[in-house]
């Protein structure tokens, strides 16, 4: 069992959140893996357009999704990006967005492994 939370995936925490239902955990992980490229693209498009409102929404949606897996680092980065968007601190967008996308990618890889291990 992979209990390493540096990947952003905190399996023990998530199982506690959903009543120990491993089947549900896997179902939700699959949905996330299908959906997260869309969320990443939303972030990239908003970043290119320098659209603070869109970037805020995209960061919020990503935070809301990854939060379910106990990805605390990614959640914190998303929150920082949200705050930057609210403050209109455009200079901070690229670095925060890059960090968020990287964190999400790491989480996704951990979820792929989780699914493979339990296939």
């Amino acid at each position: 069992m992979n209990m390493d939370t540096s990947s952003g995936f905190d399996k023990a925490w998530m199982l506690n959140q959903i009543g120990g239902d491993l089947g549900l955990l896997h179902e939700v992980a699959k949905v996330f893996l299908d959906d997260y490229p869309r969320l990443q693209e939303q972030i990239n498009l908003a970043l290119q357009a320098q659209d603070s409102t869109a970037l805020y929404s995209a960061a919020h949606a990503m935070k809301s999704a990854v939060g379910n897996f106990g990805a605390k680092a990614a959640v914190n980065t998303a929150q920082s990006l949200e705050r930057a968007c609210k403050d209109g601190d455009a200079a901070a967008y690229p670095a925060l967005a890059a960090a968020l996308l990287q964190g999400v990618e790491t989480l996704a890889q951990a979820l792929v492994l989780e699914l493979e291990h339990n296939a």
Partner: peptide, 17 residues
């Protein structure tokens, strides 16, 4: 809910209720 992950998660919890 606009985020599919949350939608599926809540749907499953409701189903089990």
């Amino acid at each position: 809910e606009d985020t599919p992950v949350n939608l599926v998660l809540m749907q499953n919890l409701v189903k089990r209720l």
